[in-house]
Amino acid sequence: MRWHRINALLIRHLYLYKRSMPRLMDVFFWPVTELVLWGFISVYINKLNIGGFNAITVLLGAIIFWDIMLQSQRAVSIAFLEDVWERNFLNVFVTPLKLSEFVSSTVILAFVRIILVGVVMGVLGFLFYKFNLFQYGFYLIPFMLNLLVFGAAVGLFTTALILRYGTSAQVLAFGLLVLVQPFSAVFYPVSVLPHAVQWVAYIFPSTYVFEGMRAVITTGSLPTVLLLGAIGLNVVYFVVMSWYFYRSFAVVKNKGKLLKLD
């Protein structure tokens, strides 16, 4: 892999972000809106004084983590869609750029986006609701990184589907993770789910992350089993999704459809 080619794609995104209101809204406006909304809901629930339950801590932590995963997935999918929308694949792939460099640039972009979103939401959460995400120190960081990896894996999967089935599949770039949300136990513990679907929850790394996040917030210690569960599943997801993405790219090249994505 050559850094100058990864850097070229990253700088291209920088050119786009600095003057694109929809892109900036995607990173700042919508996450902040969600933070404010869930913040007020949390304040209301706290006023109901349900024994020992700190809604602000649990719900705001969950919404910040959820947005981090969403940003990661969208960064990967939308970076790919940019070239579909601009019909730029030919120009990009007649350069020596490797597919691995293309994927790396999208994952780095995802990392930058989650840092931005994490910092903005963390600071606003503290200012508005006295919720200090950073008080849990380094224990939350490995869980955040797991969300980055899972979001990127889902992003690769949606990208592969768009490659194979065209832009009619692009709705998945915006909605697929939402289908995973009810099973990921984002705002409630897995035990709330009916027994019959609890096993479904445990096939997603995100479930281990959200359970782990709640454990860190309530106990102040690192739940090693949950962290290892998230890492193990993430390795499987990332390898399988990457394989599917590479396979889809090869199929599309073989069918001569790389330049006909619409």
Partner: peptide
């Protein structure tokens, strides 16, 4: 911006 992007891609 386009020219710089492609110049970087070609090193």
């Amino acid at each position: 911006e386009n020219l710089k992007t492609f110049a970087r891609l070609y090193g």
